[in-house]
Amino acid sequence: MTSDPTFPLIHWTDDGAELSARWRSEAGVAPPRRVVLADDRTTADAAYRQASEGIALLWRGDFQNARQLLQAMARRIDRKRRKPPASPLDAFNAHRQAQAQRARTLGMLLVALDADYSIPLRRAPDVKAACQEVYGDALAPDGTGGTPSVVSLRELLGLVGAHEWRKKGVEIAALGARIHPYYGVFSPVRGEYIDLVARTPLPSQALAFDIGTGTGVLAALLAKRGVARVVATDADARALACARENIARLGLAGQVDVCEADLFPPGRAPLIVCNPPWLPARPSAPIERAVYDPDSRMLCGFLNGLAAHLEPGGEGWLILSDFAEHLGLRSREALLAMIEAAGLKVIGRDDIRPAHPKAADPTDPLHRARVQEVTSLWRLAVK
C-alpha cells in the first residue's frame, strides 16, 4: 500500500510479519511510531505504562474487554494528584495540559477496522453507520474501494456516541423541537444562549444573517420567531451539511438559506447574529474549533465586518460568555475596545447565568471561574 497524505500509514509486526494500514485520526494526530499487540491478558498497569511512554497497543482481544481496559487506564490518569494552581489562568493552562496528556495516553489503545468499517474482534458492536457518517463511504456500490484502517478506541467510541446523539437529537425548548448535531459540530446542549436569542426583541422580521451557524439552531429559532428570510453561513463542510439537514427536518427550508462563507454573506441585513467560540485560545484538535478562537479571530472578524453588512438602524447580536474574562484570557476592557475600534456602540445587553452541571461542581478544576460566568447578548449598532 502506498502512503497517502490524507491517510498516513501505521505499521506493526504480527507473528514476524510486517503489516500496515491506513491511520485515521479526526484530531489530526500522527500515527504512533511504535505499535505492539495487546489482548485480554494485558493488564491495565502494563497498558498504562506503555501508553504513557508513547507505545501504542493494537487490540487483538475481546472488544468489551478493550473498553474496560480504556476505563481502567483513565482511572489511573485521573487518580494522579495535582498541585492546586495559583490563579484561574494557571488552572486553565494546567487543565488544558492535563487534558491533552490524557487524550494522548488514552489515544494509544487502538483497534483495527476492516474495509467495510466492521471490527474483527469478539463482541464488537456494529459501528459501520457511525464511521460512515464521519469518515465517508467505505466501499463503492460494487463493493470495491475500501481499505483496512486503524483508529484509537477513544476516537471510535466518540464517533459512536456522536452517532447516537445525531439519531436522538437535542431537545430545544425554545424551538419546541430537536436539533440533531453531527460529529465535530458544536452541540446546543447549553441552552442559555438560545434563550437569549428567543427573548430579545427583534429589530426586524424581514431578514437576518446567522454567522457561523453550526447546527443551524439559531437560524431555525429566528425563522420560528417569524423572520421571513434567514441566511445562515459557515465555513465548515460538516456544519453546513448538519445545518441543512436540521433546517429541512424542521420544515424551514423555505425561510432559511444555508450557504458557505468565511463569515458574512453578500449584502446587508437589519439583524446579524453571531455566537463565536468563547475562549481566545488555540484548539488542540479540529473538534475544539467551536470552543476555542485563536487570537479572537472570529470575534474580531465579526465585529470588524459588522458595520459594512448592517442596514441603517440595524442591530448586531453578539452572544458571548464572560468565562474568558474570569480565566484571565481576555478583559472586559479589551472587548469594549474591540467594539469601539470597529465603529460600533452598545445599545443594550441581556445577561443570563449558565445552568450546566459543571457550574455547580466544586471538583471541576475551573470551578472558580465557572461560578462567576455570565452569558450575554450584546446588542450592537453602527455609531
Results as ranks from 00 to 15, higher is better:
Pro276Phe: 09
Met108Arg: 14
Pro294Cys: 07
Ala206Cys: 07
Ala173Gln: 09
Trp278Ile: 00
His163Arg: 12
Cys131Gln: 03
Pro312Cys: 04
Arg102Asp: 06
Ile347Ser: 15
Ala220His: 06
Ala232Thr: 03
Arg75Ile: 05
Leu109Gln: 07
Leu37Tyr: 10
Gly145Thr: 02
His180Phe: 15
Val29Glu: 12
Ser331Tyr: 08
Leu344Glu: 02
Gly28Met: 13
Gln71Pro: 00
Leu69Arg: 05
Gln71Gly: 07
Leu110Pro: 06
Phe264Asn: 03
Asp45Gln: 14
Asp45Glu: 15
His11Thr: 02
Trp378Thr: 07
Ser331Pro: 10
Glu155His: 03
Leu157Lys: 08
Leu70Phe: 04
Arg96Trp: 08
Arg81Ser: 13
Tyr183Thr: 00
Ala138Trp: 01
Gln205Arg: 12
His309Ile: 09
Leu336Gln: 14
Ala140Leu: 15
Asn65Pro: 00
Pro125Trp: 11
Ala269Trp: 02
Asp116Val: 00
Arg229Tyr: 04
Ala334Ser: 13
Ile119Lys: 09
Ala162Pro: 14
His180Ile: 15
Pro276Ile: 13
Asp126Pro: 04
Glu245His: 10
His163Val: 04
Val150Leu: 05
Gly214Phe: 11
Ala51Val: 09
Ile194Trp: 00
Ala138Phe: 02
Glu373Tyr: 07
Arg297Tyr: 02
Ala228Thr: 03
Leu329Met: 06
Leu9Gly: 01
